[in-house]
Design a protein around this nucleic acid. Sequence first.
DNA 1: CTTGACCTTCCAGTCACTGGAAGCTCCATT
DNA 2: AATGGAGCTTCCAGTGACTGGAAGGTCAAG
Lengths: 133, 133
Amino acid sequence: MNIGDVAERSGVPAKTIRYYEDIGLVKPTRGRNGYREFEERELHRLAFIGRARSLGFTIEDCRDLLALYDDESRASAEVKRVAEQNLQEIDAKISGLKAMRDTLRYLVEQCSGDHRPDCPILKSLSNGPAHNL
Amino acid sequence: MNIGDVAERSGVPAKTIRYYEDIGLVKPTRGRNGYREFEERELHRLAFIGRARSLGFTIEDCRDLLALYDDESRASAEVKRVAEQNLQEIDAKISGLKAMRDTLRYLVEQCSGDHRPDCPILKSLSNGPAHNL
DNA sequence: CTTGACCTTCCAGTCACTGGAAGCTCCATT
DNA sequence: AATGGAGCTTCCAGTGACTGGAAGGTCAAG
């Protein structure tokens, strides 16, 4: 399989696959023409990485997960630990974003949004921290 | 005022202030010794940028907002537009993160987390897209 | 034999900083 | 007056995870 096919079937862009090879996440063989050759196993790994990334795992997490995946004798506790840590980080991000959103929404609601120059959004940014609103 | 004082009073690290000067967000004057000299106005702008950044505005947003801020004849509608767009982006991010979190939480709950190699998290990453769970 | 799609490498850019090295300046203490 | 340390300067490089583009080799169809 060439990189284009793998890209299409795994949903990971060709450019990104080359990058993943650079950083050692996948190791396709090479044909006589210099083209990368992918087996099912590599396709599988790429799809795995794609799904893990879409769940918010970092590249390093992926590396760990793939190593665990390759390790027949791994303990599921180890995998769970990685996932749980990720879960906490996601929760923290959501909380932060929610706080931002609430502040912004309040400001947007306050703003008349017309042709007049008077704007509570700028006023707030100018006068004090968001949490004072 | 030297950069250290401004950093402390604005809450923006000195390193970051230099970066902001590089990209033209602030324009401190220079003393005979080559040190940057900050007036109240610059301090004010830096605090403004810091608050806007903490609300999730990008640097380019900040540039726009500062221009609007400087423009006595701006319409608040313009400011509101920038803020509303930001609000939508934040909402989208929150939704995405929530979906990720729900999937992950389910997986973590399913995982026994013990010494056995059988792990539903890896199984799921391996077998199909997260939204199929 | 040509065209065009697909592949290769390499370099640079993204975003918003952050770290570090080398060297200058200022102020207080000895 | 010398010294020491904090604070300032510039410049270079790295972060994460790609992404874009140029220059050039390869392959399959017509």
